[in-house]
Design a protein around this nucleic acid. Structure first.
Length: 351
DNA sequence: ACGTAGAACGTAGGCTTCAT
DNA sequence: ATGAAGCCTACGTTCTACGT
């Protein structure tokens, strides 16, 4: 038995504990209290992070973006790998992809994700969507399990019973997402659609600054709002999952990237260049340019007429996610043949 | 003070697991 | 093998913090 108190750390409930401490010191504690505690010995930092997460996220919430910020501490924990069906495992993976989108210089969301869930006053410029929003959107699209009524995630579900899941490494998955969004961004910049023109000069005036970039990074575009990110990811996932079933060869890569270990920025760059030379790249570009011609102006964009505004407002909330997906599939059905065909199937399942 | 965006809540339905 | 229970996901509604 130890003869004196060992050093200990308080994972949760500090405020309650310190309140007792102070009241004891200044003699204002009104009577005797029993203080139940749960104590662990020898917990590593990954477990501590997990406990903090499970205590605070599930029952009574803290800012979820703060909780997701702890995931890098969980990432190295091997026991997590063995619980792969668990929600937290998929969220940890989604968090890693989100962080890459935030840190990777090639990413169109480089420095443009609100990692700490700050209010828009203090959030980094151009960061319209929180870390929690991204994690949620990736978890329910590309990392969906395909079980129950959930979608078939391109990075998670079996492409077919015979083929199993896509053997892509984390850097390859990140590169795909980066390329996906870059294709949308460059389509907006290179070939601005009607809605982009109307967004950047609502009165049709000759603007001194005809730069179309606010259509991608500004505050009045759904491409920089939670609904839009969800919509794009959900639809992209379903389209490319469908493509993987029809033409699996497109998704096979000879890669120089070593599997396993932490994901390094250089690995993502390598994956990006490998993707750039592939046939899949052309399909992503077609998807991106078709998506970019959808009217992404948000409900508060200037120059919308009453009917348009009503339609945009209907995209709010989770019933709105469904409505947005349906509109997106209708739009994609006007695209290149392969895209139109897959979108047609998706539409018939929605209806 | 008011309206909005998006997060939180509660629930239905379907899949998986467990018990027999 | 079968039914029951439990769990998970998506959906539709409600709530609330924030910006104007």
């Amino acid at each position: 038995m130890p003869t004196e108190l060992e050093p200990f750390e308080v994972i949760d409930g500090q405020h309650r504990l310190w309140a007792f401490d102070e009241a004891l010191k200044d003699g204002t504690l009104p009577g005797d209290f029993e203080l139940p505690v749960v104590a662990f010995t020898g917990l590593d930092v990954g477990w501590q992070a997990y406990l903090f997460w499970s205590i605070n996220v599930s029952p009574k919430r803290i800012n979820p973006s703060h909780a997701f910020d702890l995931f890098p501490l969980l990432r190295s924990a091997e026991w997590l790998e063995t619980l792969s069906d668990l929600r937290i495992y998929r969220q940890a993976r989604a968090q890693e992809l989100t962080e890459i989108l935030y840190t990777q210089p090639e990413s169109p969301f480089h420095n443009r994700i609100n990692m700490l869930g700050e209010s828009s006053r203090t959030a980094p410029p151009g960061a319209g969507v929180t870390q929690a929003g991204w994690v949620q959107a990736i978890t329910t699209s590309f990392l969906a399990t395909g079980s129950g009524r959930s979608a078939n995630g391109l990075f998670a579900a079996d492409i077919s019973a015979a083929r199993g899941p896509l053997p892509w490494s984390r850097p390859q998955q990140a590169a795909f997402l980066i390329e996906l969004w870059n294709s949308i961004k460059s389509a907006i910049l290179d070939r601005p659609a009607e809605w982009v023109e109307q967004l950047i000069r609502p009165q049709g005036q000759d603007s001194l600054d005809p730069n179309p970039i606010p259509a991608f990074t500004g505050g009045r575009t759904m491409l920089n709002q939670e609904q839009g990110v969800r919509g794009v990811l959900a639809v992209a996932n379903e389209v490319f999952f469908g493509l993987a079933q029809i033409e699996p060869d497109l998704f096979e890569f000879d890669t120089r990237i070593q599997a396993g270990g932490a994901t390094a920025p250089e690995d993502v760059s390598v994956a990006l260049s490998e993707l750039a030379g592939s046939e899949l790249h052309a399909r992503i570009a077609q998807f991106g340019s078709t998506i970019a011609s959808f009217d992404w102006r948000s409900a508060d964009a200037p120059g919308l007429d009453e009917g348009q505004r009503l339609l945009k407002r209907a995209f709010r909330g989770s019933s709105g996610y469904v409505a947005l997906r349906e509109q997106l599939y209708r739009h994609l059905a006007e695209g290149p043949n392969w895209l139109a065909e897959i979108s047609g199937h998706a539409l018939s399942r929605l209806a």
